[in-house]
Design a protein around this nucleic acid. Structure first.
Length: 575
RNA sequence: GGGCGGGUGGCCUAGUCAGGAUAUGGCAGCAGCCUCCUAAGCUGCAGGCCGGGGGUUCGAAUCCCUCCCCGCUCGCCA
């Protein structure tokens, strides 16, 4: 069938039709085509901008133009309404093209051909000083979804975790794990590498604050670390690695696997951070306090405020976080054409400083950052591992899976225990991912158990349910012939569903520009349209329409499964 | 105090970049729908000065100005 998307073809035809009647009047106004908000219209052209040039009321213009435009394939109708030219798409064209395209492309429906562009997505990168908590959980979920969607639009994507194994917090943790007697701390609530270290981390912080000797010991470790003392670096690295193992397990639970783990200490050890320092010192924007510390003055780079300085070395000559991050970004640009960083909103200034410094270093490209606001607890409490005000991702997963199990057990007593557990995992974890990714990243979120565990309406289980329904129907059908005859798919619910399916490619494209929060709404739209179709017309017991309706069901199933897939959510065949 | 981001029915949320018709969905509420393909569903009802106030425009949730509230940030921290 057709390789060209029905929607695009239709939009082109509308544009041509309108341009043609305007051309007769000697007008070359650019034609604006909008998505209509009224029922039964597929595309609309507002005539308001034409009013001035034509010296007439928009309403009159619309009527005049409508009478001249001939509704030829694939346009089935043109109407004037309130100053708009309303176009409807030929039903047969729509149905045959959309269903035909889905059948011929299968799981590739909506995907774009390879672009050859290498895109590096850095996400998660949480400090290895504690388990992943819900406050930071947006990061892996947004990052992983973005990576999946970028692959869908044809890019070569690498995902990467930048492990912060340098710095005070991880040194404190490492000190705690080595120096605190297990008897001095309460055991953790969960026997898992990352959770097991939490009590030591809290206790180490407490001791450091209370005991100057401990504080001095930790400062000494830090000094040795930063001048490149192999023994200290290895010890801290070992602690960080154990922590990362725990984090990786949690990430894997929610369907997030990263391709590359890059350790920050690498840039100290291989001298690239020192090289960055040397190059920055040459810059005309560089300055020094005379005590050995160096900074860049970034007032010419759009950094405002009373302090436009970005310090890149301490007075003892050691590097700072952002300096090492510069070395890291230079490294990433050697490996990728586009570099995307998914970062917490607290990194905004640092990211701008990094971009400015990259420019100073002569780097032609800039990383693209996606910032997200932190998730807080009710009442605005910030999540903090050290203070113990925290909901861990692992606990949220357990809770969601347990609740999903209750729901499955309630309605599917016919399934085996193992099968019920399996389905419950996919549903519970899906609910978490969906609930987090559905919100625009820069909007602050307050964690709420009821919402996080919502299994209805705008939720992953809603999509999964529609998908499972489609699967059972096809299973029960026992074979059918593909039929895309438009004459057999005329119910409004069928047309609505086909239209929803036709927008898949567009939805992926939009999501790939960084607006991943729009993909869940698209999925919701498809699932909702499918459920309406399911409720409005019989499928298995239908007469001459049976094959056509099963074909539509099959197409909806493909799209639903793939939307869920791009969201990193499983699509069980029964639930 | 400066910078950046957010403020949309009781609650959550889309739309804001590229201004257009009765502002998108969901949750909770109310009223219905399982002798028929999974009721995690469907149908209907109710609920809004799109934070406040000015302005630009034929037209503003969207653009401009201003004020208010919330978050982040302004370290030789990471």
């Amino acid at each position: 069938m057709s390789e060209v998307n029905a929607l695009e073809l239709f939009a082109e035809s509308v544009g041509e039709a309108v341009r043609s009647v305007l051309g007769k009047r000697g007008l070359e106004a650019c034609v604006e085509i909008v998505e209509p908000t009224v029922e039964g219209v597929d595309l609309a052209v507002p005539c308001f901008p034409l009013a001035k040039a034509m010296g007439k009321a928009p309403k009159t213009i619309a009527e005049e133009l409508a009478s001249e435009i001939e509704a030829k394939h694939p346009i089935s109708g043109v109407e004037a309404s309130n100053g708009y030219l309303n176009f409807t798409m030929d039903h047969g064209f729509l149905v045959r093209n959309v269903l035909g395209e889905i059948i011929s492309k299968g799981d590739d429906y909506g995907r774009k051909p390879p672009t050859g562009l290498r895109v590096n997505v850095e996400h998660t990168s949480t400090n290895p000083t504690g388990p992943i908590h819900v406050g930071r959980a947006r990061n892996p979920i947004i990052g992983d979804t973005l990576a999946r969607v970028l692959k869908a639009v044809g890019h070569e994507v690498t995902t990467e975790y930048y492990v912060n194994d340098v710095g005070k917090q991880v040194v404190i943790l490492s000190w705690g794990v080595r120096n605190i007697d297990p008897g001095d701390v309460d055991p953790s609530d969960r026997d898992k590498a990352d959770h097991n270290m939490v009590p030591y981390y809290r206790e180490a912080n407490r001791r450091m604050e209370e005991d100057p000797a401990v504080a001095e010991e930790i400062s000494e470790l830090l000094r040795r670390f930063e001048i490149g003392d192999r023994e200290v670096i290895d010890a801290v690295g070992e602690t960080a690695a154990a922590m990362i193992d725990g984090l990786r397990e949690s990430l894997s639970e929610i369907g997030v696997e990263l391709d590359v783990y890059t350790w920050e200490s690498k840039f100290i050890l291989d001298g690239s951070a020192a090289d960055i320092v040397a190059r920055l010192k040459e810059s005309e924007h560089a300055g020094t306090e005379g005590d050995g510390s160096w900074y860049l003055d970034l007032k010419d780079f759009g950094i405002k405020g009373k302090n436009t300085r970005f310090t890149f070395t301490r007075s003892d000559g050691t590097t700072l976080y952002t300096t090492r991050d510069l070395a890291y970004h230079m490294d990433k640009f050697k490996r990728a054409d586009r570099v995307i960083d998914v970062l917490g909103e607290d990194q905004k200034l640092g990211s701008r400083q990094l971009c400015a410094a990259l420019e100073i270093l002569g780097c032609e490209k800039q990383p693209e950052a996606i910032f997200y606001s932190f998730v807080s607890l009710a009442g605005g409490t910030k999540m903090s591992t050290r203070r113990g005000t925290v909901v861990y991702l692992d606990d949220l997963i357990d809770e969601a899976v347990e609740m999903a199990y209750g729901e499955v057990a309630k309605r599917r007593a016919d399934l085996s225990e193992g099968r019920m557990r399996e389905i419950a995992r996919v549903i519970g974890i899906g609910a978490i991912r969906y609930n987090i990714v559905r919100v625009q990243p820069d909007k602050q979120m307050v964690f709420n158990w009821n919402e996080a565990l919502n299994f209805e309406g705008n939720s992953a289980p809603f999509l999964q349910y529609a998908h499972a329904r489609a699967c059972t129907m096809i299973g029960k059908a026992g074979g059918f012939r593909e039929d895309t005859d438009p004459a057999k798919l005329t119910d409004p619910s069928e047309i609505r569903l086909v239209k929803a399916l036709s927008r898949f490619g567009k939805a992926l494209e939009v999501a790939s520009t960084g607006r991943v929060h729009l993909l869940p709404s698209y999925g919701q739209e498809v699932a909702s349209a499918f459920n309406q179709f399911y409720a409005s017309v019989p499928v298995l017991s239908a007469g001459r329409e049976r094959d056509a309706r099963l074909t539509l069901t099959q197409c909806a199933r493909v799209v639903l499964r793939n939307v869920l897939g791009y969201l990193g959510i499983g699509a069980p065949e029964e639930m």
